[in-house]
Design a protein around this nucleic acid. Structure first.
Lengths: 188, 188, 188, 188
DNA sequence: AATGAATGAGGATTCATTCAT
DNA sequence: GATGAATGAATCCTCATTCAT
């Protein structure tokens, strides 16, 4: 029973399924069949909509990136001098962005950037945007916005990395706490 | 005339080859054939020595971990109150540990921990040891050795992650600088 | 508003598209989707009209055969004792029958006869008709109409074969010249 | 039980199997699995030795061409003024070159030349060699060696084409007879 | 010790065909 | 009449792994 306008629905389902499966597997070694099955369709249809496995992954990556960007946006402008900064940081550890599967998928897409021009490009764009967002947010809070932005970015990545490597449910509070403490020291 | 003690030599060659190939590929998607070829032997022999591809990877991981541990050890005790701390940090960014291929391999073995009990165990051991080393090194330098150790560990990982994602040769000085600046603030 | 008589128009479009695509591809490895697209409709509609890919091909073959027959017919009776013969030969190398795509399609449908009962039957009918046409045409011109008809038929096929295998535009004049020279010798 | 020096044996088996299967199927639509099975091995091994299906086909084509060339060579110099010419023509209809499967395969590889650079190249080389061989053979027998060589070449192809399209066993005598009669007329 | 030989198990991708609308 | 949606069945190809020598 073909429904009209199935394409966006199917694509969204595939993207979600891809993120879930990659997150669950903890690697990009996920078959199109698995993804398609989880999305409730045949592998052939997945190919029909995305053309190739790579395109599915790239779409998933774009989705995560956009989703995170939206997450930040929703929190702006925030309150007070640190409003911007807090918005960015909190978004990184918001429940929908910091679930095990999401973080795991996120890091695996990071790895994809080592082998895919397009993935690398997506990541570069994201990094640049995060960086400039942080610069703006840190202005007036420190004399070294550049350096602090870099360190903060790296620290968030590191915390993500450790979050997935630690068994059990991810602890957003602990993660956030680490970041906040760092900021307190750095902005002292 | 088969050489005596060929086994350790062959195994070492395979481990090096595995690290190199994984680092070069930027993923664990490396075939046994590739590794064996680089190590100058047949895939069959690689299997003979390690039993399976997984075992090759695990051995490579153990080697990297041990190698890093040795690297720290060689720098101890270091000088002054911060001698221990500096030894640990500097080891992380020493040339042999911070080459692109090594770091890339390192992070990919990290990912392996998500799928392999044994890899996870190895990583846990390493994390624990690093952590306790840092605790000892930070004692007397801060009131919060525990927290600082955690943050420092995560930050190093994050810096590694960004180092491989940045095209071009890795910049150990910049990396080290980031870490040192953090420490200065944190131990202020 | 569905047009009356859409069926024959659609079918013709599909047949033309099939000939074009097969000719262009230089093989029967052409998808129904390609054919349908060129014919300006969906693959599903192509199936609706023809039932299967094979039927599309067979219809295309029938069309080419009929078209060639018509081409001969249009030239009859011709002039003089050799009028019939010339009509047949010239039809074979008339522009509309000797374009690269058409010839290529033609030969590929030949190949189809090896695998399809119906295609074989079509070809047999065509061969028989060509043969008897030639016999009639050669009567009075040679003592061996049978043999000459056979040889002429084979030669035309061979010339077709070489025409498609030679890169660049097909050279109808050269082809015709080869045939005419043969006839001159054979009918001497 | 792996035998030493299996490679040439396996390759030869695959080439033979490919020719047989293509000839039998009457098209290049033959799977690697079919070929490998007939050659008595797994599809994986076929890929191991040839790298791809295309390479198997090209090797088979090369083999047929070489084989035909050898066949001509074995008949040289022949006897009398027409020795060379007869050698070439007879080779074309010698039993091993004129069996249904071989001829069918031969024509299908012709078709391959429309889609494969390398196949086209092989065919061009063969055509050129045949042509120059014929020119040499016809010198002294006719004033138009060039033209006769062309016609003869095309005629042989045409006869081949009709041979495979005619059901039942190929009739080498009839084919040869057609050619010889043509030559008698052309060289009159 | 060492390897060439061999394969089973899978995985991405394609495509003719069907069907509900 | 016409099509978007959907899929089962194939097909090429890869690769870890085994084994006889």
């Amino acid at each position: 029973m073909p429904k009209l306008g199935a394409e966006p629905i199917r694509k969204a389902a595939l993207i979600n399924a891809a993120i879930f499966e990659v997150g669950r597997a903890g690697s990009l070694d996920v078959t199109v069949a698995q993804i398609a099955k989880r999305a409730g369709m045949s592998p052939a249809l997945a190919h029909h909509y995305f053309g190739s496995k790579d395109q599915i992954f790239l779409a998933a990556m774009r989705y995560i990136l956009r989703s995170y960007g939206q997450s930040v946006h929703d929190r702006l402008p925030g309150r007070g001098a640190r409003g911007r900064l807090d918005a960015i940081v909190h978004a990184s550890f918001a429940p929908q962005n910091f679930q095990r599967e999401t973080v795991s998928a996120w890091l695996n897409f990071y790895a994809l950037a080592l082998n895919s021009r397009e993935a690398a490009r997506l990541l570069r764009v994201y990094h640049r945007r995060l960086h400039s967002n942080l610069i703006v947010a840190l202005r007036g809070l420190t004399d070294h916005p550049e350096r602090t932005a870099d360190t903060l970015g790296a620290l968030i990545d590191g915390v993500y990395l450790r979050a997935v490597l630690t068994p059990g449910p991810t602890d957003a509070d602990a993660a956030l706490n680490t970041i906040m403490t760092y900021l307190k020291e750095a902005l002292a």
